[in-house]
């Protein structure tokens, strides 16, 4: 075990040495891997922020409950009581105040004056605790059964649209990640192929001296893994820079919608996941290249 670890340590050190001996090439390869990785990682970060923003705006789902035109004050009070029994966020909108508000709109006064009576019903704006689509539908059904309730309007379409968008974006993101993962493997495949070509003599000599296939391949695996890790670090740095650059404009935009919002960077778990993914893809690229270009 100790010997195995020592051999891995030596192989890793040799791979690091090779990377350090060609700093420009290493930097370029890391940038290529990093840019490939930054697209899905950036997409994930964008979706994460959209979901956080949606959570903050979750006060918006509302149910409008319209009373019948002939509903009495007692009917209205009864419905209000019934609504409050189910939901705490209930706002009563009397028909008179609706009339006044609409009349204040330009051009609407003359239209309303032409009518024989106030056309607006008493109404309630109900704000449920849950934004779950099924729960909202259940509330709508329950409110429709209340006496003298003419119409119940559920304003949850936007929640479904957002959910559909997020699902679509997540699927697209996985596809993009898969595609760029293949690109990353291809980049490492080619780098390792060139490494094998430049180290053919070392491979031959090592074989003559009794090196096993595992011993010969080990530094190449480390090379691919470390290059992938380097690419992951580049991607992380790029995402951090993007998040810093976009933080102020995003906050300003959210402010226009009366939302308090701060753009988040990658959390530590996501950073670890990013680095592990790029390192694993680097290892995979090396494995594919060794299988193809370095026969036993």
């Amino acid at each position: 075990m100790k010997s195995w670890l020592a051999q891995h340590g030596q192989a890793a050190a040799r791979a690091l040495g090779r990377l350090a001996r060609a700093p420009f090439g290493t930097l370029l390869a890391s940038i290529v891997v990093g840019v490939a990785a930054v697209l899905p990682a950036g997409g994930w970060l964008l979706l994460d922020n959209i979901e956080r923003l949606a959570d903050k705006a979750a006060v918006l789902p509302q149910i409008s409950v319209f009373m019948a035109a002939d509903a009495s004050a007692d009917d209205v009070a009864g419905v209000q009581k019934a609504l409050r029994a189910k939901v705490s966020g209930v706002q009563y909108v009397p028909r008179k105040s609706t009339l006044q508000r609409i009349r204040a709109l330009e051009g609407m006064g003359e239209v309303l004056d032409a009518l024989p009576d106030n056309p607006f019903p008493d109404a309630f704006i109900v704000t449920p605790e849950s934004d779950d689509a099924q729960a909202l539908e259940a509330l709508k059904a329950a409110f429709s059964q209340l006496p003298k309730v003419e119409h119940v309007q559920l304003d949850s379409a936007w929640v479904r649209r957002l959910n559909a968008f997020v699902t679509l974006a997540q699927t697209a993101l996985w596809l993009l990640a898969g595609l760029l993962g293949v690109a990353l493997v291809a980049v490492t495949f080619n780098t390792i192929r060139l490494q094998i070509l430049t180290q053919q003599e070392e491979v031959r000599v090592s074989r003559l001296l009794g090196a096993t296939t595992t011993f010969i391949r080990r530094p190449f695996y480390w090379f691919g893994t470390l290059q992938g890790l380097g690419g992951g670090l580049v991607a992380w740095a790029l995402l951090w820079l993007f998040a810093r650059a976009l933080a102020a404009p995003a906050q300003e935009l959210a402010g226009l919608y009366s939302l308090e919002f701060a753009l988040h960077t990658l959390p530590p778990q996501a950073v670890l996941c990013l680095l592990a993914s790029t390192a694993a893809l680097g290892w995979l690229g090396a494995a594919a290249s060794l299988w193809r270009n370095l026969a036993d």
Binding site: A6, Q7, Q10, V205, S206, L209, G210, A211
Partner: peptide, 9 residues
């Protein structure tokens, strides 16, 4: 190198 290959410390 032969010793590294053979796994010597």
């Amino acid at each position: 190198l032969p010793l590294a290959i053979a796994g010597h410390s």
